[in-house]
């Protein structure tokens, strides 16, 4: 039971750090995709969405070659800290971030697309810079969709398994997340303990998706109102 709590805590920590990476990055990419026209936009979209189409184990393997002994990040961290990031919880957080990024970007893009561009143009016309416009006009109007995207990315990060086990291993107390602990318990025939954590996953997933759907529903109403007013 005690170890259950520490496994869940480590999973939450990894998912939160992954979310801290995907939130700003996803926001920037979504803003580029929705509001900007530029060369390579199509390529950016494909690259960011690729984790949706790849087996997570491939993501993990690719990441391992970047953060492991042979990768440039791995060699950098080896010379700075004396060890690579491979098989640490940071690697698990990176894997979770990469795998959840497409969902976050898509949610953010939908939320940003729901904001009437004319409101932003009006703000710019009144002298606000692009950052100020984004923070004071776009973000407040899109915030429910944004939080919904954060939640979706967070639960995806929590449930990440394939990439994580390749790049971070399955080390109890260090890199063992809820899914990898369930895998170990199934493999070793510890069925009661496996069910316990499976139940935890279901509860976390239901709560997060419930809030996500509720926010999206409200944000759809909110956007409709704004558009009504704008007209």
């Amino acid at each position: 039971m005690n170890s259950d709590i520490s496994i869940v805590a480590l999973s939450l920590q990894i998912a939160l750090v992954a979310t801290a990476v995907t939130l700003p990055l996803g926001m920037f990419v979504a803003w580029l995709l929705v509001r900007k026209q530029f060369r390579g936009k199509f390529a950016l979209d494909v690259i960011v969405s690729l984790p949706l189409a790849l087996p997570p184990v491939v993501i993990g393997y690719a990441l391992l070659w970047v953060v492991g002994t042979n990768g440039w990040i791995g060699q950098l961290s080896e010379s700075w800290f004396g060890s690579t990031l491979a098989f640490t919880w940071i690697a698990a957080a990176l894997a979770a971030a990469i795998v959840s990024l497409p969902l976050v970007v898509r949610s953010f893009a939908a939320a940003l697309a729901g904001v009437d561009p004319r409101l932003e143009i009006a703000a710019r016309g009144l002298g606000a810079g692009s950052v100020r416009t984004f923070v004071t006009i776009t973000l407040p109007l899109a915030y429910r969709g944004v939080i919904a995207g954060v939640l979706l990315g967070f639960v995806r990060a929590l449930s990440e398994f394939g990439a994580t086990i390749v790049v971070a291993g399955n080390i109890p107390g260090r890199t063992q997340t809820v899914p990898s602990a369930i895998f170990t318990r199934i493999s070793s025939g510890d069925t009661d303990a496996a069910w316990r954590l499976a139940l935890v996953s279901v509860v976390l997933g239901v709560v997060a998706l419930g809030v996500h759907n509720w926010l999206l529903k409200r944000s759809a109403n909110g956007v409709a109102n704004t558009n009504g007013r704008a007209k």
């Binding site: 939160l16 750090v17 915030y143 954060v150």
Partner: peptide, 26 residues
């Protein structure tokens, strides 16, 4: 403004989690 407060809350939560995890794992 509830909007900014909510966004601020989420951001604060994430920052706290990162700080906690940086301190707690040594």
């Amino acid at each position: 403004m509830t909007t900014r407060r909510t966004v601020g809350f989420v951001l604060t939560l994430i920052c706290v989690a990162i700080l906690a995890s940086c301190g707690g794992k040594s």
